[in-house]
Computed example of a mutant assay.
Amino acid sequence: MIDITDYLWIIWLSFIVICVIIELLTLEFTFLMIAFGSIAGLGAELLGWEWWVQILLAAIVSVLLLFTIRPLLLKKLRTGEDPTPSNIAALLGMRGRVVSPIVETGGLVKLANGETWTARIASSTEQRTIETGEDVLVTVVDGATVVVVPVERATV
């Protein structure tokens, strides 16, 4: 009869390889920390410790690494990152000028970045139409439509 505990080292090695492969796909350092915990479990196996001690040691090392080393690695990885918002986040708060009057069915707005978007007036605004040439501010992006509010012109 085969005793599976005689082959735990193969299970540990397989688990380590699987964790490293998943880590290469995710790049979040979570599975890397679990892989290092599994290396501790493999070490316990090679020292001849009981199977439950191996699992306990692997779990403790993994949790410690997840809560201590992983945050430091993520912080280091994200230093120098470009803080400029992109995609939809870049449109929120952007100013624009009305190209085609915005009525209840919609209109067109040319945004400060040069793009022309279909637009509608925010429901919180009392104004029901915005005429051509008026300045607006993007509050929400809903699909291919920006929801805008009129910008009050400052008097000089």
Results as ranks from 00 to 15, higher is better:
Val136Pro: 13
Pro83Ser: 00
Trp49Ser: 09
Val151Ile: 14
Val99Cys: 02
Thr105Phe: 11
Glu126Trp: 14
Glu134Asn: 14
Ile60Thr: 14
Gly41Tyr: 01
Val99Asp: 05
Thr132Met: 10
Arg128Ser: 15
Ser62Cys: 13
Thr155Ala: 10
Arg97Tyr: 09
Thr5Leu: 10
Trp9Val: 05
Val109Ala: 00
Ser100Cys: 08
Asn87Tyr: 09
Ala40Trp: 03
Val63Leu: 14
Val147Lys: 01
Leu32Ile: 01
Val146Gly: 02
Ser62Glu: 09
Thr68Pro: 03
Trp49Glu: 10
Glu28Phe: 06
Leu65Met: 01
Thr79Val: 06
Ile34Thr: 02
Leu24Ile: 12
Thr5Lys: 11
Tyr7Lys: 08
Gly80Lys: 15
Glu131Ala: 05
Val61Gln: 05
Ile102Trp: 02
Gly41His: 02
Ile69Asn: 05
Glu115Gln: 15
Ala119Phe: 01
Asp135Tyr: 10
Trp117Gln: 12
Val53Cys: 06
Leu25Lys: 08
Ile22Asn: 01
Ile39Leu: 14
Val99Ser: 02
Glu50Met: 13
Leu13Arg: 03
Ala119Leu: 03
Pro83Phe: 02
Met94Asn: 11
Val156Gly: 05
Ile130Gln: 02
Ile11Trp: 13
Val103Tyr: 08
Arg78Leu: 14
Ile4Cys: 02
Arg120Met: 15
Thr116Trp: 07
Ile11His: 07
Pro83Asn: 01
Gly43Tyr: 11
Lys75Pro: 09
Asn113Arg: 07
Ser14Cys: 04
Leu32Thr: 00
Ile55Gln: 10
Thr125Pro: 15
Ala89Tyr: 06
Leu42Gln: 01
Asp3Lys: 07
Glu126Leu: 15
Trp117Ala: 14
Ala154Trp: 05
